[in-house]
Simulated assay, not measured.
Amino acid sequence: MTNAFVAQSLDEIRFWSRIMKEHSLFLRLGFRCEDTQLIQEANQFYRLFEDIEQRSHSFTNQTDPEQMRRFNSEVQQAATGIFAFKRKILGLILTCQLPGSNNFPLLVDHTSREANYFRKRLIELNEGKLKPLADAIIKENVFFLRIMADHAQFIGHLLDPSERKLVDMARNFSHDFDQLVFQARDLESMKPQSQTVPLLDQFLDQNRVSVASLRDFKKTARDLIEECRIKSIIHPLLADHVFREAERFLHIIDMFEKNLQTQK
Rank of each mutant, 00 (worst) to 15 (best):
H151D: 11
L125Y: 08
R164G: 14
A152L: 10
H157M: 14
F143W: 07
K131I: 04
K131Y: 10
D178F: 14
D135F: 03
N172K: 11
P132T: 11
H157K: 13
S162L: 10
R164H: 14
H175M: 05
S162E: 13
V142E: 09
H151Y: 14
I155G: 00
K165G: 03
A136Q: 08
M169I: 09
K139W: 00
K165D: 14
D176H: 11
H175Q: 14
K139L: 04
R121T: 01
A134N: 07
F154N: 01
N141F: 07
L125F: 06
Q153S: 04
L158Q: 10
R164D: 13
F173A: 01
E140R: 07
R164Q: 15
N141V: 10
E140W: 13
G128Y: 08
Q153R: 12
I123D: 00
V167I: 13
I138H: 02
D176Y: 03
G156I: 05
E140P: 01
N126V: 07
E140N: 09
L145M: 07
F177A: 07
L125V: 07
F177H: 13
K131W: 05
A152R: 05
L130A: 07
D178L: 11
Q179M: 12
L133R: 06
F177R: 09
F154A: 04
Q153E: 04
I155D: 01
